[in-house]
Design a protein around this nucleic acid. Structure first.
Length: 431
RNA sequence: GUGACCGUAGCUCAGUCGGUUAGAGCGCCAGGUUGUGGCCCUGGAGGUCGGGGGUUCAAAUCCCCUCGGUCACCCCA
């Protein structure tokens, strides 16, 4: 073990078969395919189209996009340089998607761009349950929309994906952060309220009192939460338009029959959010309880160089956390598809003869497998059983001479002798 | 970055008052059926007991270091 290579801490392999090893694989590859398939299907129904952006982005895009002072940028990025160029492995994909929107002048296409993505992101944090250094996010970005329906649809889209997967045990929390113009007043009020209480705050919260007081709002400390109970509330400070927007978002969510909680202390870790902010939490995830988070980010485009303001709203969700939640909920994902046919051969002539036949059957759309180790018939049958092949074709030299083959139905054990020429028809017929 | 706990076969885990060739179940391979799976029986392969150093006549077991894992803080998907 000492000389061999392993995955880098906080990363993992996704294997075809479930493995409950310590350096866990989270879920087997077919489970990933199933979940991703569900995501794509629900996205498709909403008219949301896929965008794929590079893993590698310019460091400045991320730094300016999500805020120089955020922890992600200040200490959690995998960044490096070559020559004069500075690169990062993307820690999230909202800024890259907005970059693509601006770079390709997607606004010129008219209307709202409804985009989604699924793919890996990277953060140099210490791994723990539900948190990895290479992790996978899916999410949407509705770019060019300031309508409150876009905010509501974004939230409902995430909810629909979870429900379609069978997940029901989660809560949606909602807040409005107002605009860049109204935030300073709230910040000042919050700071004024907390300053006299500084003695009772944790060290990090005391530091934030000066740097980023809003982040104190989502402290985990019981004591601090108590102090915050009487704190001024953001909603009282936001402008009329934001208030109306927030009201509309709630109206649409209610019309859709979604139950949600208003959480006046919900803030998000990235700087670009305005107005709507939301989180979807699962009670089963332990310390990393956030399944998905998102909101409106009308400032981002300008932040990364757009001359025009571009209203936008979206969410990002963690794949790994989704798998944890599914498992905790006892939701069993479909098994990987079993092969239609397993071909057992006996003797060199039959083995050689089968090779092109197998290829032809595969070309006709069947899933066909066979043993590549030249093993005994018994071993080949065992393998067929292990792979849960529905049918087995047995071809030996004796059959070959007679132009026949044995066709065995594995679930019933029924076996019949059939002419080789008739096999393609029999195999492609339904069980 | 900080802290706690953990590290014995592919997997799940026994095995510590230090004492001969390190075990089980499952999985894998083979045989029992000279050409037939799932059940059963028999046998087998697979481990430098994470790695290094130390104490000792003797270390999986005690000590130190190191690497890795897990969880939590921080932060966040």
């Amino acid at each position: 073990m000492s000389d061999s290579f392993q995955t880098i801490p906080g990363t993992f392999d996704i294997l075809p078969d479930a493995q409950s090893s310590s350096a866990g694989t989270v879920a087997p590859s077919h489970a990933w395919q199933h979940v991703e398939g569900t995501i794509r299907r629900v996205m498709q129904r909403h008219g949301v189209r896929e965008i794929r952006t590079p893993i590698l982005e310019p460091t400045a895009l991320i730094a300016r996009g999500i805020g120089q002072l955020t922890d992600i940028v200040s200490k959690e990025m995998f960044a490096f340089e070559r020559g004069d160029a500075h690169y990062v492995l993307r820690p999230e994909v909202t800024a890259p998607v907005m970059r693509a929107y601006l770079q390709h002048h997607l606004a010129q296409l008219g209307g709202v761009q409804r985009l989604f993505y699924v793919g890996p992101c990277f953060r140099a944090e210490r791994p723990q349950k539900g948190r990895y250094r290479q992790f996978h996010q899916f999410g949407t970005e509705y770019i060019g929309a300031d309508d409150a329906r876009a905010d509501a649809e974004t939230i409902l889209l995430a909810v629909d994906i979870y429900r379609e997967l069978g997940l029901t045990d989660f809560t949606v929390r909602l807040n409005s952060l107002g605009t860049a113009a109204t935030r300073p007043a709230y910040k000042a009020a919050l700071t004024a309220y907390l300053r006299p209480l500084a003695g009772q705050l944790s060290e990090t919260s005391r530091e934030r009192l000066e740097s980023n007081p809003l982040r104190i709002l989502d402290t985990k400390s019981e004591a601090e939460r108590k102090l915050l109970e009487a704190a001024p509330v953001m909603l009282d400070f936001i402008d009329e338009e934001s208030r109306a927007h927030y009201k509309d978002v709630k109206k649409h969510l209610e019309a859709a029959g979604l139950s949600f909680e208003e959480d006046p202390f919900l803030v998000r870790g990235l700087d670009y959010y305005t107005r709507t902010a939301f989180e979807i939490d699962s009670p089963v995830l332990g310390a990393q309880s956030t399944l998905a988070g998102g909101g409106r980010y009308d400032l981002l485009a300008s932040e990364i160089g757009s001359k025009q303001e571009v209203p936008a709203v979206g969410f990002a969700a963690g794949m790994e956390r989704l798998f944890l939640a599914l498992e905790a909920a006892g939701i069993v994902l479909p098994e990987a598809a079993a092969p239609d046919v397993f071909v057992v051969t006996l003797g060199d002539r039959a083995t050689d003869h089968a090779f092109p036949l197998i290829r032809a059957w595969r070309q006709s759309g069947l899933s066909v497998v066979y043993d590549l180790k030249g093993r005994s018939m018994k071993a080949q049958m065992r393998e067929a059983n292990r792979q849960q092949a529905r049918r087995v074709v047995i071809l030996g030299d004796a059959e070959l001479d007679a132009g026949m083959a044995q066709l065995k139905q594995m679930d019933t054990g029924e076996q019949q002798s059939v002419p080789l020429s008739g096999l393609p028809g029999l195999l492609s017929a339904a069980t």
